[in-house]
Design a protein around this nucleic acid. Structure first.
Lengths: 334, 334
DNA sequence: GTGAAAGCGCTAACAC
DNA sequence: GTGTTAGCGCTTTCAC
């Protein structure tokens, strides 16, 4: 029973009837213009507009799988780390005719999995930005939809990542160059692949540079996490610290100030990511900057490459450079 | 043709066949447990798990309209203003069994409309956070799905807003109390409903308080916008300014410093929203704080109220209080 | 170029 | 409790 003028939204059947054509012709008019006589199409469009017809993506997606939707799942939208990433991803997606849906996983694999169950079937492709999921869970998702992971290396899933090792090395060398001989790494969440990489790179870089290294944490990758990190930091003999990310670094600086420790006079701090706010906090944060916007854009590009009918290119990781931005939170040891 | 073991994802038909039951029984097992014999259900679940079956929300949503999805469209995700809002909204949605999809409209009504066309049919309800759409466009959307608007008053669509007038009044009184007699309002985007309200409230408050008022702008509600605002600011005789939002305020403070104007010594600045970063910028920003997290939560609650089978309650706006947070960016005039 | 008809995967009466 | 049977709104062969 096709609704005529009642509450429900009009369908192609309503439009077809009003325009005196078959439903399939209406469908073609919108899904593949050109296959329809120009005048007929014109008339149909007009009737459709009058009726307020809108194609229903749900119904369209069922038979075809084409929804023009992409999803990016982030561990925590409120983490400014994602700002530029989302920006870049959104723009690239939009330019290609896709709409990017964002889903917040709340730093929880449980929530992430549930969100995935609900959204995966709706979208044509998926970006997992700093996922907290296990490799095998990611593989399951990647089996269902083209997937790109960020900040995480997987052999069988295309990935985009920043050169953590290089970034960490430049941070450690910077600190060592200033004369620091005992460094601390303020760790982020344990489930984070990036944290593992950074800690490893830290160890290596400190060994090469011949300075002492220790690790404190893990801490939540938030301002609050940094606040608690400050307490551990004052107990340790290090004169400089590299934090898992800027949020922790900024939080730590605030916490240290409250504890009477002045940055960078008493302790130097280096962050990671160069997020919104890292340039206007006090002191401005020295940090390892990733090309965040390109990051998002690249991820979408790799996704689109998989979406194209032609055989998808190989799955090697895309490595983006990271470079140290020297600001006010680092100085020579007292 | 029901796929057996080929590439496509398994359907209820595959599960039904494997479990030796009817497809409808499989459907019931997942859509309304309890209506199925416990043992049968158990067996079905097991078979489903083995086959890797996942219910397809697209297919489920077509006949029912139930997708367990809600959408929040924001003008710009990278605006920290939305942080806590999204947080609150997401949590409330999740607790109610919904997944919240976020869509970035890029401060563009065009993009917002297109995103809406694509997502509206997928979701059960919609939150428009600081929409750049016209009232009539919003009404069109609201006709299709239960909708709540934030930061904007509409008689026929439920809304959640902060008490801009009260917040502005406290800002102006604070400044007047410090001895300022000439204030500037640094305007945000013209399409912003909140900007209109704040400017109006500013005029009224300054009139009541008997101080001079002027308006400069409009500026983009971003750090960059604030940077340009700084240039206009130095040309004007005001000794204090209230900015449309914190982003502009923070950007302006940075711009002013470059121009040799010291805040708050030479110029006092008050922001709006109390966003992430406003407490750790230099100087810490005095700002009108809205209960952001509650804001998002309330919006979802109102949405859920409309979703419930029982007749939706009336559409009056929910007004949330705003209060001034005094920090370091305001002082007595020189 | 256009129409008829068969699904896409699921839910929802309606029987049994 | 469970099976049967229509659809949900759209796309897509296949005829004409």
């Amino acid at each position: 029973m096709t609704s005529a003028g009642n509450g429900a939204s009009p369908t192609i059947y309503d439009v077809a009837q009003a325009a005196g054509v078959a439903p399939s012709t209406v469908s073609r008019t919108f899904s593949r213009p050109g296959r329809v006589n120009a005048q007929t199409a014109e008339r149909i469009r007009q009737v459709a507009a009058e009726l307020g017809y809108r194609t229903n993506p749900l119904a369209r997606g069922l038979p075809t799988g084409r929804t023009s939707l992409l999803a990016i799942v982030v561990a925590d939208v409120t983490n400014p780390f994602f700002f530029e990433i989302i920006r870049g991803a959104e723009k690239t997606a939009r330019d290609a005719g896709y709409t990017l849906l964002m889903v917040d996983a709340h730093e929880s694999d449980e929530a992430e999995r549930r969100a995935l169950d609900r959204t995966l079937p709706l979208v044509e492709g998926l970006i997992l930005a700093t996922s907290r999921l296990s490799d095998s869970s990611i593989r399951v998702a990647a089996k269902q939809r083209p997937t790109v992971v960020m900040n995480r290396h997987m052999t069988d899933v295309p990935s985009v990542l920043t050169d953590n090792a290089q970034g960490m090395r430049s941070a450690v060398e910077h600190l060592a160059g200033l004369g620091h001989t005992s460094l601390a790494y303020v760790a982020g969440p344990e489930a984070s692949w990036a944290d593992g990489m950074r800690w490893r790179a830290f160890r290596e870089a400190t060994r090469e540079t011949d300075v002492q290294a220790r690790r404190i944490g893990p801490f939540a990758p938030t301002l609050a996490g940094g606040l608690s990190a400050a307490k551990s930091l004052v107990k340790h003999p290090a004169t400089a610290a590299v934090a898992y990310n800027d949020l922790i670094a900024i939080g730590a600086m605030r916490g240290l100030r409250r504890l009477g420790v002045e940055v960078p006079r008493d302790l130097s701090i280096v962050g990671f990511d160069n997020i919104f706010g890292s340039d206007f906090c006090t002191p401005p944060l020295t940090t390892v900057a990733a090309p965040l916007r390109h990051f998002g854009s690249f991820a979408v590009q790799r996704l689109l490459a998989q979406l194209r009918p032609s055989p998808a290119p190989a799955a090697g990781p895309t490595l983006l450079p990271a470079k140290l931005v020297e600001r006010g939170s680092t100085a020579r040891p007292a």
